[in-house]
Design a protein around this nucleic acid. Structure first.
Lengths: 176, 176
DNA sequence: TTGCTCCTCACGTCACGTGAGGTGGC
DNA sequence: TTGCTCCTCACGTCACGTGAGGTGGC
């Protein structure tokens, strides 16, 4: 959650990872301190899978589909996952289990969230005209509202199901 | 919904379909009248699939797994579905889409609901001791309560997701 | 050298989708 | 005879599960 610099995992262009050249804002200062010393925070695929509650196979599969990219690889080719990577994986599982989205639909949601984070970064002085930025934000907003509508529909269905169940339970209790 | 005589689709023993030998209660009188004249209420697999919102393949698959059994077959071997059959199919889809249960889990839920309906029928004078009946009903009750718990957990997850989304939407609106 | 974790194929599974080729009543 | 609906295989797909056989750093 709240990970600003994960933009462009799939379709968007990505800068060539020039780590020390980024502007240091208060929000990224903590992350920089972590990156400077805490490189041991990167996990192997086994530990990462366990923490995220998924299988190693699922992590490789999400990567194959372009949903996630491990933050690093060792010289020997072993995948290394950051806490942000894990948050992204948990988000995928949430969208699967709570909303029943498939991985194509999840890719759309993630791309949208990435774009929003990118816009928020670009808010601190970037070559984006006010009009362009406004248009992007309104696109993101409407996609979020779409998502909100499907979540709300699911909630309504669940609540009517709950009411049915409560009625049945009451009737059985009445017979006892 | 409210279909009393669908008991024992999969594991339970089933009487050899001796239609006219059943006891006529007020509840079944209407169904008998329907059966006496309204045999055209039975649908072919194409119309049944359309009404229930599923594919023909899905109907055959559910039957293969023992989840449903079409109420009849024509001499030529064509499946015929009753309104109760369709209600059962809709129930299967609801348990899939709203709760995310797989077909094995759905079979358990349906068996439980069938049993409860059976007990309710047996309430009108059947060779079941009060103790036996009480035990069966308490089993069904606890299974229903289990189901209620999983539904409630889903609802909680959905509501926290809704809150997150609303917060995000508000923030984007603030930037606009 | 021995464990342990990790790697890449590659086949299996669940819940169907999708033709292929044939039957049956208007 | 022609349409239409239905039938039973049987292979394809999605999101992984599950070994098979090999590599790599303590």
């Amino acid at each position: 959650m709240r990970t600003p610099a994960r933009a462009g995992t799939t379709a968007l262009a990505r800068p060539p990872d020039t780590a020390p050249a980024e502007p240091v804002t208060p929000a990224t200062a903590a992350a920089q301190a972590e990156g400077a010393e805490g490189r041991e925070r990167l996990l192997g695929i086994g530990a990462a899978a366990q923490r995220a509650g998924v299988s190693e196979r699922a992590l490789r599969y999400y990567q194959q589909l372009g949903l996630i990219t491990p933050s690093g690889r060792t010289p020997g080719g072993l995948r290394r996952y950051s806490p942000d990577d894990l948050a992204r994986v948990r988000r995928i599982r949430q969208l699967q289990s709570v909303l029943g989205l498939n991985l194509d639909e999840i890719a759309v949601v993630l791309r949208n969230e990435d774009r929003l984070a990118e816009i928020r970064l670009a808010f601190h002085g970037q070559p984006l005209s006010g009009d362009e930025r406004r248009k992007l934000m309104q696109e993101c907003l409407s996609l979020h509202q779409d998502l909100r509508a499907t979540v709300d529909a699911k909630r309504t269905a669940l609540e009517s199901m709950l009411a049915d169940l409560d009625e049945k339970i009451d009737r059985v209790r009445g017979l006892l």
